[in-house]
Write a protein that binds this DNA or RNA. Structure first.
Lengths: 348, 348
DNA sequence: CTGTTAGCGCTTTCAT
DNA sequence: ATGAAAGCGCTAACAG
């Protein structure tokens, strides 16, 4: 009842092999024959059977994109860029690739599960985005999976994620350390000496690297890094809100708060507003990522712009095999400091 | 070289069929045998071949989620909710489903392409989110595709999208008309009589329905609907910014601007600020959707909260076959008016 | 509860 | 340029 390639062949009065060749366009076929086949395809409303095709050819057109949180524009922007570079023509059979995004929810287990699922589908490529969970066991498990995927012919690209050595994975990393250093450096230059820092989840590499940059900037200027001025939390607004109140409790004389990312910074702003502090008159605020939202806060947020779309597009092209990997398989992309109204000189 | 089910069978000293039964867990197998098989799977590091499995079983565990714009939290939030309800155990083979999101970029052609690709993969279910393009030709093409998918056994769910009759598709629609009516009604109740309206893309059903609601509210209160106070545009911030300037040029005495969604409303706020208008003192602003960002504008945005996460979760469960479709296959979910600081009584 | 036997629908040598 | 035939790796009756 469901129409198969054989049906098309019968109607076009050719062999199944010829239909396959027309559909894949990877073999010379007489123009007249091709036309006849295409007509039959159209008339029968034939749709290629993906699994059968993938089984016989031992490859598929599936490309997986793993993200931590699809509801977060940070990942959405990257995923969108990746997908738009992959989803075009260029695949096998029918010329279209199925680029799909998988939401891990930040869970290491789900990350591994999705990798297995994609391995099971014999995916053509896999792109992993965002910071990794920096735990020895999980790192080893991911490395093993990536190695296995590479060996099976799946292209692996890490986008905005630190390299995983010896896996054949191409890496486009963000310079989170450098960005963090520059951001805190900017605040120090304005005259700030009592800076609160809201770090992201302790186990995430992005959070860790940004914090390292912050500390490097403090050290470079001989400012003591009082541990009670750093609070770890989640990468979300609410976490920023709560942590800010905690920070103010610990040191009411704070003149600046640096957040692990923009979502957290929005929470910081809200908490400061709600507790009667003026931004930047009383307290300066800075974020990281430069999400679209960040320009609409009042005052607009000082932050570090990450080239999310550019990185994603490049990762997509590499995954699609349309661009050469960077030399050594690793490239580091720098962020750009965006100075806006939320940062200013401290009072007094 | 790549290990197959037969290898596992050999090592576990059972037949391939038994291995398959263990892996799918849909058939009684002696505990001892199962353990032996699982051990072999582990030792050989075996990964099921998805295409082969899908071919033989004539079904797959792939579930597709179509979104207009993955970088927009409106879709991200729904997609996340859908995926978290589907991605769990409950699929075939190994107990995991591959729930993936496909980014159409709002293009009708890409929407159809993705539907074909999913049909090709013999997807277990497809969820379409967001407003449809309301063009007769495209509507017919989508309807035909959905019918074909349904007939092939793919579950089809429309989430936040108007029904498509006679396709077997289950619909969870948002009451955009009602929300629009309530929002404009609120502004009218505050005393506004000169309201600008920034409608979304003219061809989108969401934009259309929200506008209809707006007009219904005007009509209900006997307010003339001056066509020059309505401007169509894209669903983004920049569009809102530009259209607001245009609106003010046409009628500088406007006391309120209603936007098609929150992103547009952010642009409205920016344009008003930049042209020296106070919100809500000079001009009130209202959005639609209640995205997370909307609470962080100053003043916070009056808007209509849509149950994105709830709708997504329900759509996901229906797609996964874990919840019954609503009676008649259609449910309409209402929005909730969120009155915040951006709306107030008009001056004078 | 387990093994045997046919395919699922397509791709791809190898001939012609 | 086209056809014939042999699987790809798995599942699903059907026996036992």
């Amino acid at each position: 009842m469901t129409v198969t390639l054989a049906d098309v062949a019968a109607r076009a009065r050719v062999s199944p092999a010829t239909v396959s060749r027309v559909l894949n366009g990877n073999y010379p076929v007489a123009a007249a024959t091709r036309a006849r086949v295409l007509k039959a395809v159209d008339e029968l409303d034939y749709v290629l059977n993906g699994p059968a095709s993938a089984l016989a050819a031992a490859t598929s057109d599936l490309v997986g994109i793993l993200v931590d949180d699809i509801a977060d524009p940070f990942f959405g922007i990257m995923a969108s860029a990746i997908q738009s570079e992959i989803g075009g023509p260029g695949g096998r059979a029918g010329g279209e690739r199925l680029a799909v995004v998988c939401n891990t929810g930040g869970s290491p287990e789900r990350e591994l599960t999705y990798l297995t699922l994609l391995q099971r589908q014999r995916a053509a490529a896999v792109v992993l985005t965002g910071g990794a969970v920096d735990d020895a066991e999980h790192r080893a498990a991911v490395a093993a999976k990536l190695r296995r995927l590479s060996e099976a012919g799946t292209r692996v690209v890490l986008c905005g994620r630190p390299p995983v050595p010896d896996t054949g994975a191409v890496t486009l990393a963000f310079d989170n350390r450098g960005g963090g250093r520059e951001l805190t450096g900017h605040l120090i230059a304005l005259g700030h000496r009592r800076l609160g820092y809201l770090a992201g989840p302790e186990e995430r590499t992005t959070a860790r690297h940004r914090l390292e940059g912050h500390r490097a900037a403090l050290a470079a200027h001989g400012i003591e890094d009082d541990p009670c001025r750093t609070v770890h939390g989640r990468y979300d607004r609410q976490s920023g809100y709560e942590a800010t109140l905690e920070l103010l409790r610990r040191d009411p004389a704070l003149t600046a708060v640096v957040a692990a990312n923009d979502s957290v910074a929005l929470g910081v702003c809200a908490a400061l507003r709600d507790s009667g502090h003026h931004i930047p008159g009383d307290v300066s605020v800075a974020g990281f990522d430069d999400l679209p939202c960040s320009i609409d806060t009042v005052p607009a947020l000082t932050t570090v712009r990450l080239p999310l779309a550019r990185a994603g597009a490049r990762a997509g092209r590499i995954a699609a095999g349309r661009e050469e990997p960077p030399p050594g398989g690793i490239a580091t992309l720098r962020g750009e400091l965006m100075v806006r109204g939320s940062s200013g000189a401290p009072r007094g």
